[in-house]
């Protein structure tokens, strides 16, 4: 499984790519593998303000429904509309084409609560063992 070094990660298996005051958000390789074939995705509208840990969308595989949580507080300034018609991209390119939303960060110090790739990898390995 692939966990790029330049991203921040949540315990709910979202990633955030931070550029200046903006965070691009998606779900991780581990999450897409656990869900299996993804067939549906939806997110809240542009302009919605989110608190860290709030649900901002839902992703569905053939078998399961899973909510997606905001890694950081802020306002949704962009959503990936193309993904709604091609949710299977989440399986094939979860860190690239299958980004979900961009958040204008409200509270930068919250970023410290997120994991780096090394910590997230360890977290996922522990979770996989628990299965």
């Amino acid at each position: 499984m692939n966990f790029p070094d330049d991203l921040k990660y949540t315990k709910d298996h979202e990633w955030a790519r931070i550029k200046g005051s903006r965070a691009t958000v998606g779900i991780t390789d581990y999450a897409q593998k656990e869900l299996g074939d993804i067939v549906y995705v939806e997110f809240k509208d542009k302009g919605t303000s989110l608190t860290q840990g709030n649900v901002f969308g839902t992703v569905e595989s053939v078998k399961a429904v899973s909510e997606i949580y905001a890694p950081i507080s802020g306002t949704i300034i962009e959503t990936n509309a193309a993904l709604l018609d091609a949710p299977e991209k989440i399986n094939s390119d979860c860190y690239g084409d299958a980004w979900m939303i961009v958040i204008e960060i409200k509270d930068a110090p919250e970023l410290d609560k997120l994991m780096d790739s090394k910590a997230y990898k360890a977290y996922v390995e522990a979770e996989a063992k628990g299965h």
Binding site: G36, D37, S61, V62, K63, N91
Partner: peptide, 9 residues
């Protein structure tokens, strides 16, 4: 087993 590679495949 619920799937090996992918339910769709």
């Amino acid at each position: 087993p619920v799937w090996y590679t992918s339910i769709k495949a």
